[in-house]
Design a protein around this nucleic acid. Structure first.
Lengths: 273, 273
DNA sequence: ACCAGCGCGTTTACATCGTAAACGGGGTGG
DNA sequence: CCACCCCGTTTACGATGTAAACGCGCTGGT
């Protein structure tokens, strides 16, 4: 299964299996109405509509293009109208993050309870989050950037409801409270970390095509300093993220099973205090 | 004030050992001259000085406070003067990221070659990067956010020199080319991911002190929906990031050793005792 | 000694941004 | 019928990124 060397097509999109979490891979969930410019325009504007429009807008035009005026325009309204429902731009972005995370609730493949065991629960949750990250690559970095709702939760996943769900799922599946918290940390660290990285490399021009012919040879010359990078260029430029995600996730689950049985960290001679 | 349930100090800073990578933990490396407001002012302004000032400024005032005018002022110069050395704000931030990553070269504890084995190499590199991340928590998120210099490297660590160093270190330590690339992915994914998360929870008000007394009881009421979170509040609010980092790093190294021996993906139900 | 040129920082100017404040208008309850 | 108020608009202001023109002081050729 692990692709050996793929002589032609250095920019192949993986091993051949379509990514099950990619937006094209599913019918629903990532509904993209193409952001009708002036909107039908009679629905009377409320907070959810604004947040939804903001997400659409960011997905379509990038985070940096989102301004209050433009967002207003995309809703057929002046910028200042938004301020009746949102205190300001910063809080609007907070709301966007919250909304995106809350999309999970609508995902039928993700459960709030560990009905089929905690491994199934974590697996579904991970893929659900990954699906959302891939559907909103420009929004997702905000999740890590923005300060959390409950500051004292470390690390701060923004939705307390999910934290609660996670912790009850784990403690009711044989994890001690210590272990559940440790698992929460390891899991969310892995998940957000991996996805942040995966998402940050989307939207990058895969092939050097079209990127602009400024410094066409300069880049080559610069690369001559790094022979190994050049030699492994083909391997390095493959996108194996789906397989890597799966692999790392399964490894993590194995680690957590160990934590569950031992009660605490799988390495240390002494734990703490 | 807000946290009524406060038995002692639930926001304690860990187990007692000082974090070896924290800025206070070392003498050098994170030299912080306190940003003398108008600067001594005779050095004639060049790109490196601008980038350095930008990093200082962000560390001191936060990323969002960095404007061209203010950065100019911190160098005793008008904003437009900067444009002679930097094409614009965006590229200035790119330069900041590059500079921060390049700080690694000045760290005596981090080596470019795996003279004492690849595990030592990776360990030193990881802690070096962590030190930098903790020294510049406001800068570090930019590393993940900004598009990379060599787009086709996945995931894109910004410095090709470090990618080169990594790959040669690994291939010369018994990793096949495939394995080295896989290791590069797993390692950088873990490292950037973990540090991004760790850094994002710094700068968050640890204790609800001073955060503003809006919604003092509202937060409590909201929390009542999440009994498990409340019950585990103490555990959740501990900062174990140093220990967790160490643990996760060691686990990764173990995984990589497995990769090295097997040649490729570490399929492990229960690998080690 | 001159002066042309140019490297480098300043000044001026403008479009755009977030947002405070006042405004208006249409629906609703007395 | 009128007073109110919900909700979107208008106007206005200071700050931002940056283009363009300006000017000062040093330098090298004659």
């Amino acid at each position: 299964m692990a692709t050996a060397a793929d002589p032609d097509d250095p920019c192949a999109e993986g091993t051949g299996e379509p990514d099950p979490d990619s937006p094209e891979g599913r019918g629903a969930v990532a509904f993209v109405l193409p952001a009708g410019p002036p909107d039908t325009g009679r629905t009377p504007l409320d907070r959810r509509r604004i947040l939804g429009a903001a997400i659409q807008f960011i997905d379509a035009n990038g985070l940096s293009a989102l301004t209050m005026r433009r967002l207003g325009a995309s809703l057929g309204v002046e910028a200042m109208a938004l301020y009746r429902y949102v205190p300001g731009r910063e809080q609007l972005l907070d709301g966007v993050v919250e909304s995106v995370i809350d999309e999970l609730y609508g995902d039928p493949d993700v459960h709030l309870e560990a009905a089929h065991g905690w491994q199934d629960y974590l697996q579904r949750l991970a893929h659900g989050v990954r699906r959302i990250a891939l559907a909103h690559p420009e929004v997702f970095p905000l999740v890590a950037t923005r300060p959390p709702a409950a500051p004292w939760v470390r690390p701060p996943l923004r939705s307390l409801r999910w934290v609660e769900s996670f912790l009850t799922a784990m403690t009711s599946s044989g994890f001690s409270e210590d272990s559940a918290v440790a698992a929460y940390r390891a899991y969310s660290s892995f998940l957000l970390g991996h996805l942040l990285l995966e998402v940050s490399q989307k939207g990058v021009p895969i092939n050097a095509q079209d990127a602009g012919e400024s410094t066409p040879a300069a880049a080559e010359a610069d690369l001559s300093e790094y022979p190994t990078v050049v030699r492994l260029q083909e391997l390095l430029s493959m996108d194996e993220s789906a397989a890597e995600f799966e692999e790392a996730l399964e490894n993590l689950l194995g680690r957590l099973e160990h934590v569950r049985r031992e009660g605490r960290s799988p390495r240390d001679p002494e734990s703490f205090t």
